[in-house]
């Protein structure tokens, strides 16, 4: 059976380099995009099982993308990752339907638990 596809959207190149390796170690297929616009333009939404999404990005940020997807009726589970520890952001994104939010730097365990939560069972 095909691996579940996890999409990473982050403007930080180092994240785009490191995170996919870890996700692959977890056994997921991984697609990376450096911006929300790029992701939306890729047409990959349909096969995305989980979206690992940075919040602060030039142009459309993570929150905008969540809103956009929700507006389209797309129910892709979203795990936010952010370098800025802000509890108000956590509350806001969870209310908007996000699965979880991880503050950088986060442990692989925390990521794995979030992914489990996003996709029911592993």
């Amino acid at each position: 059976m095909d691996k579940l596809v996890v999409v990473v959207v982050d403007d930080d190149e180092s994240v785009r380099e490191s995170l996919p390796d870890l996700l692959k170690e977890f056994g997921f297929a991984v697609l990376t995009f450096s911006s929300a616009e790029e992701f939306l333009a890729s047409g990959s939404t349909a096969r995305t099982s989980c979206l690992v999404l940075d919040i602060a990005m030039p142009g459309m940020n993570g929150l905008d993308l969540q809103k956009e997807l929700k507006g389209r009726g797309d129910k892709i589970p979203i795990i936010f990752i952010t370098g800025k520890r802000d509890e108000s952001i956590r509350k806001r994104v969870l209310e908007q339907g996000a699965v979880d939010i991880l503050f950088k730097p986060f442990s692989d365990t925390a990521l794995r638990q979030a992914l489990h939560k996003a996709m029911g069972s592993d």
């Binding site: 995170l19 370098g83 950088k104 442990s107 692989d108």
Partner: peptide
């Protein structure tokens, strides 16, 4: 501080992720 945190957290995040990945790869 937020700016600095962001600046520092990005590489820290990379370090943690990469180190985690590294361990997993070595454990395979």
């Amino acid at each position: 501080t937020a700016s600095i945190a962001h600046e520092v957290n990005q590489p820290l995040s990379g370090i943690v992720t990469n180190a985690s990945t590294c361990l997993r790869m070595l454990d395979a």
